[in-house]
Design a binder for these strands. Structure first.
Lengths: 131, 131
DNA sequence: TATAAGTATGGAGCATGATCCATAGTCAAG
DNA sequence: CTTGACTATGGATCATGCTCCATACTTATA
């Protein structure tokens, strides 16, 4: 798969793909120059890797953290315990964010109800929610 | 409340507070220079405003969006319908993020289980989750 | 073989969200 | 009335995550 096809497959702009490659987040193979193309060649696993990067970004990880996590993940392929630990870390972080989002949700819902009720005395207070 | 006290009350660095003021996100009063201090004075409502900004950041809003939302919110104080609309927008956005986080959570949990089970044939595939 | 389209590389530029710094004014205590 | 702590201002700098550009090479097509 050439980079333009990879871009279509992942929905990522080519510049972004190259940026990720330069950061070591994506590691496509390079064809040998002898007779064939000198270009990078992407496989299905690279598509999955790109999706994983995007997922991790939605989890709130920076590209630097993602790189570290994925390197640890690869290192852990021979050690399921380590892999589990890394994934569990991600899950924990996810749960934290979800809890914060739920608190925010409660607050906003309370505010909507309060406004709908014609703004009685007791306004929902931000301080009462763990946001 | 002086800026240093406000910093303690909110946990925000002074530079960040000034940055937010320069962007119009925080609008403390200014004491008149005649005889008294020329400094900015913060009230409890500014503390709440700061908390709200941080909350909105965790919802994934940029400072520019937060400024717009809060201006709309203030404009909507005379129109509960508009205020509700703005808050509902925030809730909808929050629900979307929560759904994405839940999908990611399912995937990661599936992966952990799969590794714990000694990595049988059918690995959880990222493609099967709406992350 | 000319030409266009795709690819590679390095570096510049940009938006966001801070963070730091130089300078200068204000104020309370000693 | 000097010293030290605090405040205000504007601009420089920084990290992140792209995005764009100049240049140059490769390859397919006419």
């Amino acid at each position: 798969m050439l980079i333009s096809e990879f871009a279509k497959a992942t929905g990522l702009p080519i510049d972004t793909i190259r940026f990720y490659i330069s950061k070591g987040l994506l590691t496509p193979e390079r064809s040998l120059k002898g007779g064939s193309r000198p270009y990078q060649t992407f496989k299905q696993e690279d598509v999955t890797a790109a999706r994983m990067i995007r997922l991790q970004q939605t989890l709130g990880y920076s590209l630097g953290e993602i790189l570290t996590l994925n390197q640890q993940y690869r290192a852990g392929e021979t050690s399921p315990e380590l892999t589990i630990e890394v994934l569990q870390m991600q899950i924990d972080r996810l749960e934290e964010r979800k809890a914060a989002l739920n608190a925010a949700l409660s607050f906003l819902r309370g505010k909507v109800d309060w406004i709908r009720a014609g703004k009685p005395d007791d306004a929902p207070r931000l301080e009462d929610y763990q946001c």
